[in-house]
Design a protein around this nucleic acid. Structure first.
Length: 558
RNA sequence: GCGCCGGUAGCUCAGUGGAUAGAGCAACCGCCUUCUAAGCGGUAGGCCCCAAGUUCGAGUCUUGGUCGGCGCACCA
């Protein structure tokens, strides 16, 4: 059964369209009117409002208010979800839900249970969502933590909305940063035995403690075995040792963070099977590559780009851009996804357009790839931004963050802001276990409901409870909010913005707390008790499903 | 210099071309004999960065500025 909110919204559109169509026939006007129906901000303007009369006024050559009157007069409300509609000042038509709307909304939630919020909006479309894809040369930092929370919750939104989603981690286990990684490892290993006086790590190497630890652990196992080997042999041995450990750590750290991937896609596979060259050959066939200074270039300027881009360096090693094209070609043309979503840090924004340009040459529509650009995270401590640098090895890792704050708090915090806004992560607030912390606010609402349901377990609430007894403002407002859940998920999907779910939880918790303060349950007449318990259960179901999207725990007690 | 993102209450941020611009935190004043006070109610707080334009209507769209973040490698 479709949810009542969407049904009633569709109903308003249908009724208005039919009425306007009739008037078009009557006045001999051609129907080409683009209007909307939305939820007004102010309560007195009803549950839905439409601007149709204002938009259509000039077509009909009638004043908006006059036209609104005609539209309404032409639009019977019987057998609808609406009790009345009103016409207001510049020409708005405002609709008000009838009692059935609220009753059916509750029945729908209660009977849907764990599947409430699920829709067939996506019609099973195959979507690939790639996120985090942190470099396997070191631990994940705070930006990866944000990407993980956003990506994973967004994937859940897409699943709820009826998409067939696969979550993928792209492992950059090839290319330049791996060269740098093994060089850094080898130097640290060598230094365990050589002990050069006043040794300083070269500028172009990774400076982090994790490199030293790998070298030490490697030395524990192999001792001096590789000290006198060729540089190449030494680097390969220590790389073969350290890289799998790093990848395994990425996997287990993300799992701890409740992020589980369907696929781990290795960049090295694109090299092994010559996939990169096959894709470059296609670009060449289409006439979009050329040679210059010993390198092979992509003619990006031919597709509107500012400058051309190197695909294969003069040393014959392909660039990251080249493997990225091959990787995305694989997503669309090999594995057949109709849509790919990437979550990238905003510092990669310059890559979006050139990748799309290359893909369009390969026959992939630019719009098939959507890149969510996630703005940078700033760590704020005592009101001051903390300067972090991965190169200096003092960045906050995901792990060290999770030592400071519970996983729920981290996942919730990183989804409080929309991806495209700069995010100040307030470490002090996140660490605080108090009423200031918004995570506890929503979890407390859930626990309160569970408390009530437990205390009044003797009462039965059923679909046949007399829900029309719920008619206070707080009750109706709460029902209206939770009924909107499936719609809200679709909004999150359309805007690639899971923070809408966090806001939904916060608003829902606030409305429940208000209801709780005004409406008592225990001690009321039996039929009112069961109606209100039904409302509580419906809120519980909704919050629980929303928590599942965010992967935060629904605790029955605080 | 060019490009992307942002500027809304003291702070952190919502806001679909619509009606009277909202929330949380901080400040101040109240509310537990009751189903969980990690809660609720109230007060106060605004040249929506500036300027021009588009139209019935602009925080929202366009252009030009300004301030901040991030890019502009044969790095990833």
């Amino acid at each position: 059964m479709e949810d009542v909110y969407s049904l009633s919204l569709k109903q308003v559109y249908d009724m208005l369209r039919r009425s306007v169509q009739n008037l078009c026939d009557k006045y001999g006007v051609e129907y080409c009117i683009n209007f909307f129906v939305e939820e007004p901000q102010v309560l007195e303007f009803g549950d839905f409002a439409s601007n149709v009369a204002m938009v259509a006024a000039k077509h009909f050559k009638l004043p908006p208010l006059k036209l609104a009157e005609e539209i309404v007069a032409n639009m019977p409300l019987n057998n609808s979800y609406f009790a009345k509609c009103e016409i207001k000042k510049p020409g708005f038509i405002n609709f008000f839900f009838n009692n059935e709307w609220y009753v059916e909304a509750l029945q729908n939630i209660l009977s849907s249970g764990t599947s409430f919020g699920r829709t067939n909006f996506g019609k099973g479309e195959k979507v690939l969502l790639e996120f985090v894809s942190a470099n396997p040369t070191g631990p994940m930092h705070i930006g990866n933590a944000r990407g993980g929370a956003i990506g994973d919750s967004l994937a859940e939104c897409f699943k709820f909305a009826g998409f067939n989603v696969e979550k993928e981690f792209y492992v950059n286990d090839a290319g330049n940063q791996i060269e740098k990684f093994k060089k850094s490892l080898a130097i640290r290993y060598e230094q365990i035995y050589k002990k050069t006086p006043n040794f300083v790590m070269p500028q172009d190497c990774y400076q982090g403690e994790d490199i030293i630890k790998h070298a030490k652990d490697f030395a524990k196992i192999y001792g001096e075995k590789y000290v006198n080997s060729s540089k190449q042999e030494m680097e390969q041995a220590i790389l073969d040792y350290a890289l799998p450990i790093n990848i395994k750590n990425l996997e287990s750290d993300l799992l701890k963070y409740k992020v589980e991937y369907d696929n781990w896609f290795f960049e090295s596979n694109l090299y092994k099977d010559k996939k990169i060259y096959e894709v470059i050959d296609i670009l060449t066939e289409k006439g979009y590559t050329f040679e210059k200074d010993g390198a092979l270039w992509f003619g990006y300027s031919k597709c509107g780009g500012a400058k051309d881009e190197v695909l294969i360096r003069d040393n014959k090693i392909p660039t990251y851009f080249a493997s990225d094209i091959a990787y995305h070609y694989n997503k669309f043309k090999v594995r057949g996804f109709s849509r790919a979503i990437n979550i990238w840090g905003a510092d990669h924004h310059g890559h979006v357009d050139r990748l799309k340009a290359a893909l369009s040459v390969l026959g992939v529509e630019r719009a098939s790839l959507y890149v969510v650009l996630m703005q940078m995270v700033r760590i704020v401590k005592r009101g001051e931004a903390v300067k972090l640098s991965k190169r200096l090895g003092n960045s906050v890792t995901l792990n060290s963050l999770l030592d400071l704050i519970p996983i729920d708090v981290a996942r919730f915090f990183f989804n409080m802001r929309e991806p495209n806004s700069h995010f100040d992560f307030d470490l002090d607030l996140a660490c605080e276990q108090s009423d200031n912390n918004p995570v506890y606010y929503v979890q407390y609402a859930y626990a309160r409901i569970c408390g009530i349901l437990k205390k009044l377990a003797g009462f039965n609430f059923s679909l046949s409870a007399n829900f029309s007894l719920l008619n206070s403002f707080e009750e109706l407002d709460l029902i209206k909010h939770i009924a909107k859940f499936p719609f809200e998920i679709i909004e999150a999907v359309k805007s690639y913005n899971p923070s809408k779910i966090v806001r939904f939880c916060l608003d829902g918790a606030a409305k429940f707390h208000k209801f709780y303060g005004v409406c008592r349950i225990k001690g009321e007449a039996a039929d009112l008790v069961s109606a209100r318990l039904g409302l509580c259960e419906a809120v519980r179901i909704t919050l629980k499903n929303a928590f599942n999207i965010l992967k935060i725990e629904a605790r029955e007690e605080v």
